[in-house]
Amino acid sequence: MGAINEIAARLLETGEAKVVIGYGEGSFGSVRPAFARNQEEAEKLIYDKRCTQNLAMYVYKKEISPLRKLAIVANVSTLRGIIRLASENQIKNGDIITLYINELGEVIECKALSEIEICLAEITPEIKPEDKELIDKLDAMTPQERWNFWISEMESCIKCYACRQACPLCYCTQCAVEVNQPQWIPVAANTSGNLEWHITRAMHLSGRCVECGQCGEACPVNIPIHLLPIKLAEEIKNIYGTVSGMKIQESNTLSTFKPDDKENFIG
């Protein structure tokens, strides 16, 4: 039994956590999210290289949320997701114990959000090489080529909203796509309507995205949809120097009115 199982068992036994969100063996050699509520379930938790899913999206799900305090097995993007959720007031300090597994495989137990910030302070987030490659390829295109690329990708979207469900930051009880008075985004899966949905999603994530790439992972038709928010995050970092999900008291980069903001980009 590895460290993660021991810690999970202890947290459940002492009642410090009602549930430990982690990873378990799935079928055909895959991993799946697992929710340990007792000793027996705690023993089945695993952690290895296959465990890349950002579990932070479970903490606000209505089935899980009432079970706070929760413990959650975390990789870097989970930590960033939790910090971002905290800065948007979706998590309170003390709601969550994170079991961060670092590069050396050590489990670091963070009970306070400030401890997560300390873990993150040592990390420089990087875009995955394969994503970087595709972003560079898209950057090199003319606007028309890029438009054609996305249009052709959008044709295959079936509007299943798996991208939204997988995102640690899509916590709204009423998503913009569900608003029908007025109906901003068409419900039907057609190319222009799909594009509207994905542009809206990217804009709603701009300045917030923690670059976990889960939306792209979740897509059943393999649209590299995670590139839109990741590219926006990169742009924001370049322009404003801010990276989302690293500090709780971070500024809301694109949603802060400052009287001394320079308006030199106008005219």
């Binding site: 948007e88 007031n89 709204c172 009880t173 009423q174 949603s255 802060t256 009115f257 009287p259």
Partner: peptide
């Protein structure tokens, strides 16, 4: 049980001039 669709993210607080 919804009360409001506002999620209390408070980002509107910082954006309001």
């Amino acid at each position: 049980p919804i009360f409001s669709t506002c999620m209390g993210c408070e980002m509107c607080i910082s954006i309001c001039p």
